[in-house]
Design a protein around this nucleic acid. Structure first.
Lengths: 224, 224
DNA sequence: CGGATAAATGACCGAGGGGTCAGTATATCC
DNA sequence: GGATATACTGACCCCTCGGTCATTTATCCG
């Protein structure tokens, strides 16, 4: 006798799959976030996403219209908490602009370093080049909001005399670039390079430089 | 009589193509640099490269082994001058470390902002993720050399007391990140966003912040 | 001029993968 | 324990694109 199932009950040969209309979307989304993050947009096969989510490609299409819609959903779900947390932090903050800037950058850093986000941030920065609608989506829904926040913080610091007078818009970009660089680095070069970045050292150094760079104590004329 | 050609000479019906064994490689390389830069690695069709170079896909393969070899050649040709110039600048420099750092960063900036390089730098940072050999190639042949140079400059400044004591390796990364961010930005988001970055403003602001950030005049303790 | 050489072509191959859908297995209801 | 509804499957379609190669055609040379 072929022991088709465990135990004495040979009536339920353990169904090959189950219906879970309500949990599927989340399962698929989680798998998509992982795999998109690991391999990038193009290299992600929907069949693999399905497999990791415990279903088939067909099921993926049952819940998401297309690859690019799935991607957007994955990004949205992963990034929203970060944006929300950061906006809240700015709103509630009492105290120096220095501390606030530190807090905001650190919050972003934590999110990016410790969640599935790393991979997705890198992705957005990079592979969206050939998909203008994805680029626009990311820019409008996330990047711009983040930058607006940073501009606000820097402007506030400048007004209170805690920061130098700088071009606020450009400074906001300068200040995030180390974070973005880290995201790109980790997912592009770290895997092929012997020595990994010491992440916390890197972040702390970048914060040091940024804070010192914005400090008004400076009276050097810097560039000609 | 069928007027096969212009004028009186009906013997040379304008050849459909010409032999140019010696100029083809360069033509193809130039086309490849442009198109890779515009569209990224995957989205680049060798047929399009051929067309822009004035030949067919078949001819491309006559001079380059494969797509990835063509890509490496394109990158090598585009990046070498920058690396060479920068290394030379460091070698020959007399004067303050501040000036040297400024010079090196500005040199890189000029190269990246004004040549076909922008597109390729962005590419390397991004799409190489799924092609480990390309990532390794770029890291070994270019990125590492550039970073070594920056470390040297920063170390020198620290030794002479012109810069603060910082984690040199991390600082070298922080200092380039605005440049890399700009490369990514221009090729990913600028096309889909109304207002472009004011490039020179951006660079100057970033230089300001970096130089001030490394200045030893600072006695704040910055981060806890 | 005409034959030899080889540069260039373009039709072709095959793998890969997004997207579809007829059929099948599971859940539910009576 | 059917009968019905539908979540899920997996084989299939078809297009794209890197890479190949027999054939075509420009050029060289005697």
């Amino acid at each position: 006798m072929k022991p088709s199932t465990q135990g004495n009950n040979d009536r339920k040969p353990a169904p090959r799959w189950r219906r879970r209309k309500d949990t599927r979307p989340a399962e698929i989304l989680a798998a998509a976030q992982e795999i998109f993050g690991e391999r990038g947009y193009d290299a992600t096969r929907l069949e693999d996403v399905g497999r990791r989510a415990g279903c088939t490609k067909g099921t993926v299409f049952l819940y998401y219209e297309s690859k690019s819609e799935l991607f957007k959903a994955a990004v949205r779900e992963a990034m929203s908490p970060m944006v929300r947390d950061t906006e809240q932090a700015v709103e509630e903050h009492q105290g120096s602009a220095r501390d606030l800037l530190t807090k905001v950058l650190r919050l972003r850093w934590e999110h990016m370093a410790r969640t599935r986000l790393t991979g997705l941030v890198k992705l957005l920065l990079t592979e969206t080049g050939k998909y203008p609608d994805l680029a626009r989506f990311y820019n409008d829904e996330f990047f711009d909001r983040g930058q607006a926040l940073l501009r606000k913080v820097i402007q506030k610091g400048a007004d209170k005399g805690e920061f130098r007078k700088v071009d606020v818009e450009q400074a906001a970009r300068v200040v995030v670039s180390p974070l973005l660089f880290a995201a790109v680095w980790r997912h592009t070069f770290e895997p092929v390079v012997p020595a990994p970045i010491e992440l916390d050292e890197y972040f702390n150094t970048s914060l040091e430089i940024m804070l010192a760079g914005l400090d008004p104590a400076h009276v050097h004329e810097t560039v000609r």
